[in-house]
Design a protein around this nucleic acid. Structure first.
Lengths: 158, 158
DNA sequence: GCTGAAATAATAAGCCG
DNA sequence: CGGCTTATTATTTCAGC
């Protein structure tokens, strides 16, 4: 059977199919997953348990539409702390609830952060918290060519 | 009772609490949610149904750790199509399974995209698909000061 | 990994403020 | 209309193989 091997995990095609179905709808019942992969419900439940245990499945969550709640403005902020202030900036980012996502990256921008706000005024308040310690560059999201989708897309069988 | 009003939705504190609990764990039972907000299970189920209906809850999904599956390299790509090629680039992005997220943004970069790959060679292949039609800037993710978190953070009561 | 039973949880119906 | 209780159905979990 086709497999994906890594130091941590060794998935077969049934595991992959389960993951893909759960990504599409995390509430799919084990009975339905079982039907899809040709196993029994308890076997599927046990596989899911192991996928959680080894860290493949990090969390079950709901995707929320910020715009439906009045957060109609979303922006990507590239953030370049002034020398010596990187940790301070990281701390500020953690304290800003408007920032939903943030990664430390290579290159001249040290952080790239996603903010959801209700207005330009609120965006300004976010930027103003950061700007004493960093140069920032703000790009307003206009649309999305793709919906957030699976990181499994990058998988190649080896 | 405290409320959040928008043209689409009118949430009370119970709805918000339900959303926050579901974000933390989408498999929390309605009985447990009911206990948390002081309502009965059927009432909670009905509120969840409406949150889906009006588009606040977009999807139930699992968060997957790409690194656990061997996709140990993630990168943000800023993409600036050459004049006239924006739609072509958008099409290429849609066809690249390694790209898990992408937004069209204001500013000199038209797109900002997240790719998960297994190696630098795979990253190069992704970039090579785009580069005939756009200028790109790639920033490798080193770490994340925050875990992906709720867009609800930006909410202010009005 | 399977089957079958027991425990839990989700859903539907009917009723009340 | 939104919520509650009870009854029914579905799902998850556990035991033994």
């Amino acid at each position: 059977m086709k497999r994906l091997r890594n130091e941590n995990v060794d998935l077969d095609v049934a595991d992959l199919k389960i993951l893909r179905l759960l990504e599409k709808d995390a509430r799919t019942s084990t009975a339905e997953l079982a039907r899809a992969v040709g196993l029994s419900a308890p076997s599927v439940a046990e596989r899911i348990r192991k996928l959680q245990e080894n860290g493949v499945i990090e969390a079950y969550t709901v995707r929320i539409n910020p715009a439906a709640l009045g957060l109609k403005l979303s922006a990507w902020l590239r953030i370049r702390p002034v020398p010596g202030q990187l940790a301070v900036v990281a701390g500020i980012i953690r304290e800003l609830p408007e920032i939903a996502q943030c990664d430390r990256v290579t290159g001249e921008d040290c952080f790239i952060a996603l903010a959801h706000v209700g207005s330009v005024a609120e965006l300004e308040r976010v930027i103003d918290k950061i700007i004493p310690y960093a140069m920032t560059n703000t790009a307003i999201i206009q649309s999305s060519p793709i919906e957030p989708r699976s990181p499994l897309g990058g998988l190649r069988e080896r």
